[in-house]
């Protein structure tokens, strides 16, 4: 099976029903996409399929075939960080950082459709992503900053 990940084509051996999360992590060693629950409850595994945020833990690899898959590793353009990555750094919007890739990708999907979201829109869009360290206020501030500076 061929998968288009971060603009590169990968041939993968995994069975088509294998969750995209494990294909990325275990077969391709793209470990920026995280496991937190395996049931769509935490958002740590969020990736973009054709720009739409999806839970990689619940997405069979076959479903991603023919779509453009974006993981956290593909967000920066070379050395240049994505505005959201930059904003997370500036707001210090992490502690352990384990939730951060999923947060950034979920926010990227939000800003794609709603470039200038209200605080309520941010909270609604992000509510499926858990930060156990409790950096939520900083994540909201980072998304607002990225929206402002984009």
């Amino acid at each position: 099976m061929q998968l288009d990940i971060n603009g590169r084509s990968y041939t993968v051996a995994a069975a088509p029903e294998t969750a995209l999360l494990w294909v990325l992590r275990n077969e391709l060693n793209l470990t920026g996409t995280k496991y937190g629950c395996g049931e769509g409850e935490c958002g740590a595994c969020t990736v973009l399929l054709d720009g739409v945020a999806r839970h990689a833990c619940l997405t069979p690899a076959a479903e991603a075939k023919g779509k453009k898959i974006t993981t956290i590793e593909g967000l920066a353009q070379g050395e240049k960080l994505h505005p959201l990555q930059q904003a997370f750094l500036q707001e210090g919007a992490w502690q352990c950082g384990y939730c951060t890739p999923g947060m950034i990708l979920r926010a990227a999907a939000l800003l794609r459709n709603t470039p200038h979201p209200s605080e309520e829109e941010i909270v609604a869009a992000m509510n499926g992503n858990i930060c156990r360290c409790g950096t939520y206020p900083r994540i909201v501030a980072a998304i607002q900053r990225a929206a402002r500076e984009a």
């Binding site: 275990n26 920026g32 956290i72 750094l89 384990y98 890739p101």
Partner: peptide, 27 residues
């Protein structure tokens, strides 16, 4: 002072224990 290692966090490059691998490793 800004936390060190931030770039590796926001780019997904930081390897957590869950991400660790060794050559020839089994599961």
């Amino acid at each position: 002072a800004a936390k060190t290692g931030g770039r590796a966090i926001v780019t997904g490059e930081h390897r957590y224990p869950y991400d660790w691998t060794r050559p020839g490793m089994l599961w």
